[in-house]
Computed example of a mutant assay.
Amino acid sequence: MKFNLLVPFLLLIICSVAFGQEKRNTATVEKGLIKVSIMYPYAEGKTFNMEYYETRHMPMVAGFLGTNLVKYTIEKGLSSGIPNQPLPFMAIGTFYVKSLSDYQAAIAPNRDAIRADFPNYTNISPVILVSEVVK
């Protein structure tokens, strides 16, 4: 009888420690990072080639960022948070970098190449937000 109670208790402790540690590490790594969000607004008649963006464009830009890049993410818009409202963004690409000045220094000489690649995957002018991760 005691064994039946002990096993779930031990599993609970192991899971709490494992998942709690993972959560703490993620939070401390991201705080203070610079987040560059490139958002592609939805509009009638606009197009976005997600496969090209994922396999060619984002890896190209990530390559320009070098060791300053911590990670990048790609999001595909699915719906608005408000029922029956249009999709706000078709896609969002995000770069997490250590230094804003290093990011700007890496992008500046490659800006023309980045912009020249836009027609290969979209006819949308992106909206860019640079922010700092606080939590």
Rank of each mutant, 00 (worst) to 15 (best):
K76W: 08
S80R: 09
R56P: 04
L69N: 00
V133A: 06
F48S: 06
G77K: 04
V133M: 01
K71H: 05
I74F: 03
T67H: 10
S131Y: 05
F95H: 07
E51Q: 11
G77A: 02
S125F: 03
V70Y: 05
I128V: 03
V61Q: 04
N120C: 03
E54C: 13
Y72N: 15
L100R: 11
G81L: 07
P59L: 10
Q85T: 08
A91C: 08
V127A: 00
I92D: 08
V61D: 11
P126G: 12
T94F: 01
N84M: 08
A108H: 06
N84K: 13
V61S: 07
S99A: 15
F48M: 14
V70Q: 01
N68D: 09
E51T: 15
V130C: 06
T94V: 00
T94A: 00
I114F: 08
E51W: 12
L87Q: 04
S99T: 12
N84H: 05
A108T: 15
N49Q: 03
R111S: 12
S79G: 12
T67Y: 09
F48G: 12
A62R: 09
P119D: 00
P126H: 11
Y121G: 02
M58Q: 15
P83I: 15
L129T: 15
A113V: 06
L129H: 14
I92T: 12
M58H: 15
H57Q: 02
Q85A: 11
L100C: 12
P88S: 00
F89T: 14
V70K: 05
Y96L: 06
R115L: 14
L87R: 02
E51S: 10
E51R: 13
K76I: 10
R56F: 07
E75D: 09
Y103M: 08
I114P: 04
N110P: 13
T122L: 06
S79E: 12
Y96P: 10
F48Q: 09
E54Q: 15
A116Q: 05
V70P: 01
V133W: 03
G93T: 07
P88D: 00
A113W: 05
P59W: 07
V70M: 00
Y53S: 09
M58R: 14
S131E: 09
N84W: 09
S99F: 02
D112A: 15
D117I: 11
A108R: 12
N84Q: 04
T122N: 04
I124R: 11
I74C: 10
D112W: 06
I124K: 07
G66C: 01
S99G: 15
T94D: 01
A113L: 06
L87T: 03
V70A: 00
I124H: 07
Q85K: 14
A116G: 03
T55D: 03
V70L: 00
F118I: 11
S125G: 11
A91K: 10
G81F: 04
G63H: 04
F89D: 14
S131M: 13
V61F: 01
F95N: 06
P59I: 03
L65F: 01
V70E: 01
V61M: 08
E54P: 10
P119I: 03
N68G: 00
L87N: 05
I92F: 13
N68A: 01
V97L: 02
F95V: 12
